[in-house]
Nucleic acid binder design. Structure first.
Lengths: 224, 224
DNA sequence: TGTACATCAGTGAACGCGCGTTCACTGATGTAC
DNA sequence: TGTACATCAGTGAACGCGCGTTCACTGATGTAC
């Protein structure tokens, strides 16, 4: 049993997790792995409170203190985790809204569908993000999830305004109020479709039917 | 310093909290006080996880183990706390829907307004209730918040159907889908108005304007 | 009316646990000479 | 090319803390005789 053939604890850890210690200057690689693991665990557990620093570290194949080489504390880790997800949603909305040649009604429908579909594809992250936007937790304005959200919301406002200008939508609309109403409606439907699994006693139609219903109803309500 | 004049620790506790030990057979009185305190703390903290059994006991003026004379564990305590709130909302919706003489559109508007206003009056309980309806936590069907919710939802469905029958609403509506859409829209707007305090960068109009916008848009969208 | 007793609504101290975080350290990697 | 050294990415053990919950108990209240 020479030293070269005896597996060490370090070897075991490497084999189990598939991780090697990062080269010098490549420490940032671990950061992304941590964020990936945190996101996966968030999906699995459904709440930030039930995901521990230790479990994230274990999933990555690293010791718990190693997390602190990349994030100041637990809050910062999960803030970054959620922001990444929100960025993807924002990107999809920009794409859906962006095609300025098409009719406004069509662009809004596509964006609304993209929004709800994103929420259904990432149900846990979506709920965590919205759950984490709690008034009491918003004391630090720099830590808000809304940076990308603000951008999307402003696009929504200007698209509705464009619809009014193009005489697709009624001219008497209070555009900002309608924008909040549309956002709220789409968000609310997304949340209900996510949670409907638990509501067996309410017979909820297919996702697509409900998505069509809310988008059609909203559009019909603001159309000329 | 005779025993009759020396204040005991028990006297102090009584004076501080205003509680007396319940008479025999009146143990149930404490139960309501516990639920009231739990609800208040829930509002204050914004999340079940941040309210401890110890803090509830302290607010009531009782020792922590006393809680266990009335509730099996922490889950049961907060389940009951939320159910009470949900029952009030349900009652308000029944009232708003109930006046069968009036036009359906008016009844729906009143119910929608009552729903959002209730959410704004009890923002934290509302978010906690909706936050606690998480798919992963719904494994025990007897512990669902939806018992009163089911009743309200069924009323919504039948009211919309009544609107179709009375030829107030379009005959081609898929009533169940529209009901989910309406519920989702109202819920989503309520949630956004609750959380808007934290979103200073998005300029959100007055509550009433937004409420009017979503209800008018939805109604206009389903009207004949 | 007095008194022994059962019952009930609580209490105080302690339990075990898991958590976020800190600390002193190790050992591989790259670099200057 | 060899070697001493600085740097960096980690580790293992331990910390203090607050939590939900349990346990053995106390003392006021009502009741039977």
């Amino acid at each position: 049993m020479s030293e070269t053939t005896t597996p060490t604890a370090t070897d075991d850890a490497r084999r189990a997790s598939g991780r090697r210690r990062a080269r010098k200057g490549e420490g940032e690689l671990l950061r992304d792995e941590i964020l990936d693991a945190a996101e996966d665990l968030l999906v699995e557990k459904g709440s930030m409170d039930e995901v521990t620093i230790r479990s994230v570290a274990k999933a990555v194949g690293v010791s718990a203190p190693a997390i602190y080489l990349h994030f100041a504390d637990k809050d910062e880790l999960f803030y970054e985790t959620c922001r990444r997800v929100f960025d993807v949603l924002n990107q999809r909305l920009i794409e859906a809204f962006g095609d300025a040649d098409r009719p406004v009604a069509e662009r809004m429908t596509r964006a609304g569908r993209a929004y709800i579909q994103f929420a259904l594809e990432h149900p846990d992250q979506y709920l965590v993000i919205f759950g984490s936007i709690h008034p009491d937790q918003m004391d630090d304005p720099d830590k808000m999830m809304t940076d990308p959200g603000v951008q999307s919301f402003e696009m929504l406002v200007s698209v509705i305004q464009a619809g009014v200008d193009a005489e697709e939508f009624r001219s008497d609309l209070d555009v900002p109020s309608v924008a909040v109403a549309v956002w709220g409606a789409v968000h609310g439907v997304a949340q209900i479709l996510i949670t409907k699994r638990g509501m067996e006693r309410i017979e909820i139609p297919d996702d697509d039917q409900v998505i069509d219903a809310v988008l059609a109803t909203l559009l019909e309500g603001i159309r000329v």
